[in-house]
């Protein structure tokens, strides 16, 4: 037990914003978490070079979702559109941050989406990525970034998706002793943030071990003013985890980045089929 729940502090929350960001839910979630942790929100708007290249192609057309009509675009149009988009997002971040009295900054960078995000993530404690946007908008770059962070990122990653607010619990998956403390600490922060129930799924070889670990966890949480329900995790495949989380109606699953369940092809299953948000505790 090296990390107690109250000891975990996210100082810098990175919020990558690109031209595909559709709404303010990520922004609102970041602000809410930052307000609770007294952290800084760093908004970074990346002007993806792929978009500039696209606009420079002679046949470049943009399809408007509301009219389903195609219009000719060029590099200048794209630059203007990106600037406008960045302006809107900056204003929105400023407004929300001022309301919640949260420190904030906003940067515009031009380059490769993945490289820029990884670069910024180095100095951050938590990065927020929208996997809902990945699915809904078919943002190729976002998908690439998400995949990368899932497998290689260093900081904690919060893979968000827009879900209705309800009473569903925060689930912490403790399948590895070494990373378990950090997973639990992160889960506690999210449970506190949203005032939600905490459900801890513990991988154990037998009932005795489960009981022991559950007891330890109970003591740890009690000392920190938290309560949690513990359940044994007897199966070890990603599909089983998805089923358990679905049955538990989890709102958010906190899982260690190096969890065997998130390695290999497992991360793809989790991304595709898990009906909740995911936090990869780094």
């Amino acid at each position: 037990m090296t990390t107690r729940p109250h000891e975990l502090i996210f100082r810098r929350i990175l919020l990558p914003l690109d031209s595909g960001a559709a709404d303010s839910t990520d922004l609102d979630a970041a602000i809410r978490l930052a307000a609770r942790l007294q952290a800084e929100v760093v908004g970074i708007f990346i002007e993806d070079v792929d978009l500039m290249r696209l606009a420079a192609l002679p046949f470049a057309r943009e399809m408007a979702p509301l009219s389903a009509s195609a219009r000719r675009i060029d590099a200048a149009d794209m630059a203007r559109a990106l600037r406008a988009r960045a302006g809107v997002l900056r204003a929105r971040l400023q407004e929300r941050a001022l309301q919640a009295r949260v420190s904030w900054s906003f940067h515009i960078v031009q380059g490769e989406l993945l490289a820029e995000q990884l670069g910024e993530a180095v100095a951050s404690d938590l990065i927020i990525l929208d996997i809902g946007a990945r699915r809904a908008s078919m943002s190729r770059a976002t998908d690439q970034v998400t995949r990368h962070f899932f497998s290689q990122g260093a900081c904690t990653v919060w893979l968000r998706r827009a879900l209705a607010e309800d009473e569903r619990p925060i689930i912490a998956l403790l399948d590895d002793i070494s990373s378990g403390q950090r997973v639990l600490a992160v889960a506690c922060q999210f449970a506190r943030r949203d005032g939600k129930q905490l459900l801890v799924m513990i991988a154990a070889d037998d009932a005795i071990e489960f009981a022991r670990r559950a007891h330890d966890i109970g003591e740890l949480l009690t000392a920190d003013g938290m309560e949690a329900e513990c359940r044994p995790l007897t199966r070890s495949a990603a599909s089983d985890l998805i089923q358990d989380v679905t049955e538990a109606r989890g709102k958010l699953l906190v899982i260690a980045r190096d969890s065997p369940l998130a390695s290999g092809a497992g991360y793809q299953r989790l991304l595709e089929d898990l009906p909740c948000e995911i936090v990869l505790a780094g």
Partner: peptide, 24 residues
């Protein structure tokens, strides 16, 4: 298929990146 500020666009890709205009 790429998401743009105003909607969607299609672009040829090479090596995971949109082909540069000169290369095109």
């Amino acid at each position: 298929l790429i998401r743009t500020p105003g909607g969607y666009a299609f672009a040829p890709v090479r090596g995971g990146e949109v082909i540069k205009p000169d290369d095109y």
